[in-house]
Amino acid sequence: MKIIISNASNQPIYEQIVSQIKASILNGELLDANPLPSIRNLAKELQISVITTKRAYDELEREGFIVTVPGKGSYVATQNKELLHEKRLKIVEEKLAEAVSAAKFIQLSLEQLQEMLSLFYEEE
């Protein structure tokens, strides 16, 4: 798992951690029941405050991405497969919505956009 913290970013550090761990879970790099580094160890490695990493883990737990077993540590939550699929779908939807609004901004027609999409899809 890779976590890169930017001090120049306007995004709070705990949010940067949340989104990067989430990404690692969603793209399958971190699997069900994989252990996560301890809150204190992560703080030490990233040279940030314990409170910040604690807040990030609290947030991930609230959103159902990880579970914390008192005295043992934090693990990737066993995801409901459908829920995981749902979450990944949502990411696709968000990116598409972004593309649509960018397209509308330059007055691209639906046909032109669909054509573009087909091209990209086949390329991959």
């Binding site: 709070p12 550090i13 703080a43 405050s49 409170i51």
Partner: peptide, 25 residues
């Protein structure tokens, strides 16, 4: 980077004592 809490003193008085993240956010 590393502090969890910040206590700020000025002219013999505590101005605040709180979590660093809250302060900066």
């Amino acid at each position: 980077k590393i502090a969890d809490y910040i206590t700020f003193i000025n002219d013999g008085q505590i101005i605040f004592s709180t979590s660093k993240d809250v302060l900066l956010d």
